Amino acid sequence: MPSETPQAEVGPTGCPHRSGPHSAKGSLEKGSPEDKEAKEPLWIRPDAPSRCTWQLGRPASESPHHHTAPAKSPKILPDILKKIGDTPMVRINKIGKKFGLKCELLAKCEFFNAGGSVKDRISLRMIEDAERDGTLKPGDTIIEPTSGNTGIGLALAAAVRGYRCIIVMPEKMSSEKVDVLRALGAEIVRTPTNARFDSPESHVGVAWRLKNEIPNSHILDQYRNASNPLAHYDTTADEILQQCDGKLDMLVASVGTGGTITGIARKLKEKCPGCRIIGVDPEGSILAEPEELNQTEQTTYEVEGIGYDFIPTVLDRTVVDKWFKSNDEEAFTFARMLIAQEGLLCGGSAGSTVAVAVKAAQELQEGQRCVVILPDSVRNYMTKFLSDRWMLQKGFLKEEDLTEKKPWWWHLRVQELGLSAPLTVLPTITCGHTIEILREKGFDQAPVVDEAGVILGMVTLGNMLSSLLAGKVQPSDQVGKVIYKQFKQIRLTDTLGRLSHILEMDHFALVV
């Protein structure tokens, strides 16, 4: 994948999101292997301009796509893939009243899908469409860049269908997702969380590099694949309309690839034109409109599966009536509230959605109805927002919020430890010299600072030695090549209790 991002070429006709291997024109390309080798690009942008032909009021008969309808489940399912879809609609009884809503608040519980998330729908649909058009064949390999849930859905379907599955996901995604993927037989590649989507090191860039190296491999490409919004247009939206008897006044959905909100909203605009569509985008993402909503100094966020630093091709923002931004604290607070007060075992993005819903639905009156999409299960986040310690460490809970008995030293300040200034190293000294210094002084790690004293990161003896043994660096290389740029900081005025929580999850903390 090139470091400079080429513009994806656009073909003359058809839909841009065809499933299957992508040609340089962004659509299915038939021909000899030699032709494909000559024409197939190194990668295709996940934010390529959409060429979708959908228009409100256009006859369904003019759609270029294969459409399906929700099917009634048999008493005995032939395999677990038949437990994807037909998820329950559940009334939220307490939270709406707590925040003064007059309307009825309903939750579409997508964590009841077989793999635990709304992404099971698009995973199965992308595979079925690729099999139907002859792209996927027995023994082929599926590769997908994902925040985890699409990966789980694909790995689940691949396990049943017999495909090899490789999932490329950023490091910030939970260990629970990784464990589930491994249990399903998927191979996992992790990428830096802070890598831009168009960087060769991003999950998108690495996935395309693997595709170019592995024979008979395919990126189904949830960011561009029409099967993504079509899955929701054909099934999720129809289920909502049936469950609500066609009567709903507002739908609120958090947005990642945009397939969920695009597919549902398009069908609702056709069948229930008075329904307002509300999009939820986390602070630090750029999906919301108008652009002024996205202006923030924050560039990272903890909530998973929603928000991006690019506009995915499948996201149709014209069908969203209003956007709201959400933050991590309210997302996790509301997710825990949904679990504790409503018994809905949902993930953090569901918290984002409901946090926005109780604001947006203030305009609705008694007798009206708001539906929220709860995308995934708490299963993926047992060591994250479900953990009091994690919430404390991230600053989303305060010590006084917890009532468990603490040891005698818990409320003492870090400054009472009488710490001395640490050994520091410059980023320009060599790895070999740094190892000598650390061994001589008896230290395992040291902060790396520039000549102005600005902290650049941390270097550890173990990481340097393993990097040297693996051949990633040489003793003569500058130590700046092996620094940890993500590390926890703590102030002298913070409590030892807070430091204790940090050290339970990290090997060190830097006192500043």
Rank of each mutant, 00 (worst) to 15 (best):
E4Y: 15
E4Q: 15
T5Q: 08
A8Y: 14
A8Q: 10
A8H: 10
E9Y: 02
E9H: 10
E9R: 09
G11A: 12
P12M: 09
T13A: 14
G14C: 04
P16C: 03
P16V: 01
H17Q: 13
G20N: 09
G20Q: 10
H22R: 14
S23I: 12
A24C: 12
G26A: 02
S27K: 14
E29M: 09
E29D: 15
E29A: 13
K30L: 03
S32R: 14
P33K: 04
P33V: 14
E34M: 09
K36D: 03
K39Q: 12
K39A: 12
E40I: 10
E40F: 15
P41W: 10
L42Y: 09
W43R: 12
I44P: 10
I44T: 11
R45G: 14
P46T: 01
D47K: 05
D47C: 03
D47F: 02
D47T: 06
A48F: 09
A48W: 08
A48G: 15
P49W: 13
P49R: 09
S50D: 08
S50C: 01
R51W: 06
R51T: 09
G57L: 03
R58E: 12
S61E: 12
P64V: 02
P64T: 02
H66S: 10
H67N: 04
T68L: 09
P70E: 10
A71T: 15
S73L: 12
P74V: 14
P74Q: 09
K75F: 04
I76S: 09
K82C: 07
K82H: 10
K83T: 11
D86R: 10
T87G: 02
T87W: 00
T87L: 05
T87E: 04
V90P: 01
N93Y: 05
G100C: 07
G100Q: 10
L101Y: 04
K102N: 15
C103H: 03
C103E: 04
A107R: 03
K108L: 01
C109H: 02
F111L: 08
N113G: 10
A114E: 07
G115H: 07
V118I: 06
K119L: 03
I122P: 00
I122M: 07
L124S: 14
L124V: 11
R125I: 03
R125F: 13
R125P: 07
E128M: 12
D129A: 09
E131Q: 13
D133M: 09
T135W: 10
L136M: 12
K137G: 07
G139T: 08
I142T: 04
I142W: 00
T146V: 07
G148Y: 00
N149P: 05
T150I: 04
T150F: 02
I152K: 00
G153L: 00
A155R: 02
A157E: 06
A158P: 02
G162A: 04
C165V: 05
I167V: 02
I167D: 07
M169L: 14
M169I: 11
P170W: 00
P170L: 00
K172V: 01
M173I: 10
M173C: 05
M173D: 06
S174T: 04
E176K: 09
K177V: 00
R182D: 05
L184T: 06
G185Q: 01
I188N: 04
I188Q: 04
V189E: 08
R190L: 05
R190A: 01
R190M: 04
N194T: 11
A195D: 01
A195L: 03
R196D: 02
D198V: 02
S199H: 09
E201Q: 06
G205L: 09
G205N: 08
A207R: 00
L210V: 05
N212P: 03
I214H: 03
S217C: 05
S217W: 00
S217K: 05
H218M: 09
H218R: 14
I219F: 05
D221R: 01
D221M: 01
Q222T: 01
N225V: 02
N225M: 05
A226H: 07
S227R: 08
N228P: 00
P229I: 05
A231L: 06
A231D: 09
L241K: 05
G246D: 06
K247V: 04
L248C: 13
M250Y: 04
L251S: 01
L251V: 11
T257N: 02
G258A: 01
G258I: 01
G258Q: 01
G259D: 00
G259E: 03
G263Q: 01
A265R: 06
A265C: 02
A265L: 03
R266T: 07
R266C: 07
E270W: 05
C272G: 08
C272H: 10
C272E: 08
P273M: 12
